[in-house]
Amino acid sequence: MTGSLASRAGVRQAGWLLAPALVWMGLFFVLPLLIVLLISFASRGAYGGVEWTFTLVNYRDLADPLYLWIYLRSCAFALATTGLCLCLGFPLAYYIARAPARWQGLWLMLVLVPFWTNFLVRTYAWMNVLRADGLLNRLLIATGFISEPVEILYTDLAVLIGLVYGYLPFMVLPLYAALERIDRSLIEAARDLYASGWTVFTRVIVPLAKPGIIAGCLLVFIPSLGAYITPDLLGGARSMMIGNFIQHEYLVVRDWPLGSAASFVLMAMVLVGMWGYQRTGGERPL
């Protein structure tokens, strides 16, 4: 009896601790989100305003092949980014996790160093690297791989490079956390039980790192699906992703209802994806 009383008191205390964050999130996140949801069912006014007449036309408009193409492209970019980040991040995270303890901190810090600089500044730096007379082209010409500068900036490749660069740390950190926890003796046990290096990887390391792999993939996939700055600066006008489309509708076309609807479809895609993953029996990733 005393136990349940004590725990109830504990719950009440926890409630007070939650209040500031709840108020903040309620006022500045949930409320605006509801407003956007409302706007997505409103109509566009003649001069860019919002007319409060209920309609589903915004969502129907999004089924236009042009817009569907943008969604598909965004998904493809996000998938490719996730895949590349996993391929680059896994060996890196494994190396750090198996490095001597005193080096691990240094390696992790180096992974995080880019965050010390503003993302926009770093993206401008990438523009300088990828330009026709930029570092990359000069390097390729100097080493004789190409004779003429190739167009990299303002292509899909530039967007992909930028996205992978930007989100790699989000893949490496959860992977590192999962790999670092794997007991070295499990790998030895697998070797001892006749497993080759590759089989140890597929049968022991990958299954044990699964929570980290899933967390990393979600942390990369979700933000890269809605990426805005990278495709805007590195991709130019041709390389539109959902984020740019929403920005375009809000600020250029001033069709707030369509922009709002696009935002909610993006959110729905993410949520359905996560729900589907949990339905297939995956453990809670985040």
Partner: peptide
């Protein structure tokens, strides 16, 4: 001869059982 090709098996100090496999899965591994 690498460890996976030696006719030797080890019972590890802290057992090193594969946490993601069942008891049968562990025993069947080799």
């Amino acid at each position: 001869v690498p460890p996976n090709l030696r006719p030797v098996n080890m019972v590890f100090q802290h057992y090193a059982l594969f946490p993601h496999l069942t008891v049968s899965g562990n025993i069947a591994f080799g």
